[in-house]
Design a protein around this nucleic acid. Structure first.
Lengths: 165, 165
DNA sequence: TAATAATTGACTAAATTACTAGGTTATTAT
DNA sequence: ATAATAACCTAGTAATTTAGTCAATTATTA
C-alpha cells in the first residue's frame, strides 16, 4: 500500500464517476474523461493513464465513440478505496532484502521488516472496508462545508482524534 | 497523510530504536544511527535527515558524543505511527484549488475534494491509534515467519481480508 | 587531547509523478 | 460514406520527491 497524490487523483476521479453516472433518468450514462478532467482539474492524458489501469483491474468499463465514456464495472458498494489505490499505485517495496531466506533471524533487521509488513497489511485491510458507496452516502448526511473548514471533523467519526500526536 | 517508502524507513527505524534501546539492565541506552543503519540497511545520512525531523517533532531525544545516540522522547505507547509518518512526510496537498472560497458549490469538483479530505482524515485517525508499543507487543505473541510467508495473515486481525477487492 | 557521534548544509543520482504531444481505433450521427 | 466523438496507445519530458554522498562543525566522553 502506497498513498500519494496519484492515488488521490484516482479516488477523486472514481468518486466523480460514481456521482456523475447517475443521470436524471434511471439509466447509467457513460461519463467522459474530458468531463472528469474539467470538473476535477486533472489533465486528460493523465486520467487516460489512470483509467487504463482501472479498466484492466476490472473497476470500470468503457464505451467507445460518441456518447461513450466510462461506467463503474461493479456496484459502488463493491469498489473499495484500497482497490482503486492498488490499481494505480505500485505496491510499496516491502523489504530491502526481498524475501530471501537468509534474512529471518531474530536480529533487529527482519523483526522490524515483519512488523512493517503487518502494519502495511492492516492499513490495506482498513481501506478495503471503505467503499465508494460509503463515501458517497456519508456525504449526503453531512454539511460538506464543515468538513473542510471546521477543523476537519469527520462526518461519521465524531470524536476529536489527535493529529500529529 | 502520505504513505511512501520514506515513511516506511522512518517507522522501521523507530521500531528498531524502540527494540534496541532496551538494554540488558533496566536503563535505556542511546542507540546510534550507525547501528540502525547497519541493522536496517538504511544509509546513515538518510537516517540523519529523518531523525533531524523526528527530533524537531519531539519524538526522539539525542545524546551527543561517545556513548551517545538517540532515545525515544516519549513512552512507546504515546508514539503513534501517524506521528512518525507525519514528521518525515510533507502532508499530501489536499486540493487543486487550495482552500479558495470560490470553489464550494455543489458541483462535482469540491464535493469530491471534500470526500477525499474526509477519507484522508479517517486514515490519519486510524493510524494515530496504532502505537510503537502496539507493534512491538504484537510481535511477541506471533510467529514472525508466518506473517511474511503465510499469505500475510495479520497477527491480531485473524480474519481473511479481501485484498485488491 | 583524541575519539565519538550528533548536527548542519550543499549538492547529486535515481525514481516517481504529472503532464504533453501525436497518433489509432471503434462507434455514432449526419 | 463521412465526420465527429471519445476511448486507447506510445513516447517523451518537466517537475518533484526520494535516497544518497560529501564535507564540514559541535558537543561530549574517555
Amino acid at each position: 500500500m502506497r498513498l500519494t497524490t496519484k492515488g488521490r487523483f484516482a479516488v477523486t476521479a472514481m468518486l466523480d464517476l460514481a456521482i456523475s453516472e447517475v443521470s436524471s433518468e434511471g439509466a447509467l450514462k457513460p461519463v467522459t474523461l474530458a468531463g472528469i478532467s474539467e470538473r476535477q482539474d486533472i489533465s486528460l492524458s493523465y486520467l487516460e493513464q489512470l483509467f487504463s489501469r482501472l479498466r484492466r483491474q476490472g473497476l470500470v468499463s468503457s464505451v467507445r465513440g460518441p456518447g461513450g465514456g466510462y461506467n463503474l464495472a461493479k456496484e459502488k458498494a463493491d469498489i473499495s478505496v484500497s482497490a482503486i489505490i492498488s490499481a494505480v499505485d505500485e505496491d510499496i517495496d516491502a523489504t530491502q532484502c526481498g524475501g530471501k531466506e537468509d534474512c529471518h533471524g531474530t536480529d533487529g533487521r527482519c523483526m522490524t521488516h515483519d512488523l512493517w509488513a503487518t502494519l502495511n497489511f492492516k492499513i490495506l485491510d482498513y481501506l478495503s472496508g471503505v467503499s465508494l458507496a460509503d463515501m458517497v452516502d456519508s456525504q449526503q448526511d453531512c454539511d460538506v462545508e464543515k468538513v473542510v473548514f471546521a477543523a476537519r471533523k469527520s462526518c461519521d467519526s465524531n470524536e476529536e482524534a489527535v493529529i500529529n500526536g
